[in-house]
């Protein structure tokens, strides 16, 4: 009833009929071939450095960014970050295949648990599906590989971003997604994360760590 009434009213306002083929093809064409706005020159100009842009944009948003060429060194890099911040050496993570190729036992003292985040987990570890250079944004897919709560419940969130997945624009990341899981499909949640949680709701002053993580560490790494 409501549905019918609303759609009828919209058509009446637009002077349109439901079966106008030209209007339907306009929609089909746009969805089949999603147009792109001109890409920002900061990533599109010749000679622009995607990785450097990703890093500097993310740092501006108060994340810590560390580059690690050898994935074998990830555990020790994480351990020293946690120690430097006086945090427990405990990690919660999902079953992303990128993580299973790392030898975690080599790292002194790290305790790892898998599964979704529990309320008192100090640190969550995720692997990004893509990085977007234009604003230093990390794109994460929900699911068993990277449970979505890892990025919101713990006080600290660590995200591994393989260098080869760092793309210039949001549209590039969507194209990667369409290729990976098929056009029109989405994971239950696609999260763009571009810095630690913050608020300016009290007196207009920015405070880091509103409801989500107080710290965000991005590890830019080599592909396996």
């Amino acid at each position: 009833m409501s549905r019918r009434a609303i759609l009828d009213k919209i058509r009446q306002s637009l002077n349109a009929t439901p079966n106008d083929q030209a209007r339907r093809s306009a929609l089909d064409a746009r969805i089949a071939n999603p147009p792109r706005a001109p890409a920002p020159s900061r990533v599109a100009a010749t000679g622009s450095d995607t990785i450097a842009c990703f890093k500097s944009e993310l740092e501006k948003q108060l994340a810590t960014v560390v580059e690690i060429d050898n994935p074998a060194l990830i555990p020790s890099a994480i351990a020293s970050y946690l120690e430097a911040n006086k945090l427990p050496l405990r990690l919660r993570h999902g079953c992303d295949p990128y993580l299973s190729q790392i030898n975690w036992t080599s790292a002194a003292g790290l305790t790892l648990n898998s599964g979704p985040a529990a309320p008192n987990d100090p640190t969550g570890l995720s692997v990004a599906f893509a990085g977007v250079a234009e604003t230093g944004t990390m794109v994460l897919q929900s699911g068993p590989d990277n449970p979505v709560t890892l990025g919101y419940l713990p006080d600290t969130h660590i995200i591994i971003v393989p260098k080869s997945r760092i793309l210039a624009t949001y549209e590039d990341a969507f194209e990667r997604l369409r290729t990976a899981i098929g056009s029109g499909n989405m994971p239950r949640t696609l999260n763009w994360i571009s810095g630690p949680s913050r608020t300016a709701d009290i007196g207009g002053r920015i405070v880091i760590g509103a409801h989500g993580p107080r710290r965000l560490l991005a590890l830019i790494t080599a592909e396996k």
Partner: peptide
Amino acid sequence: ATGQEITAYTTFSTGPRRNGDPDG
């Protein structure tokens, strides 16, 4: 809105949790 390049979080939600999803 705030002069930020982007907000800390932008979240795309599609349907309920899927088979095998541990949360959501």
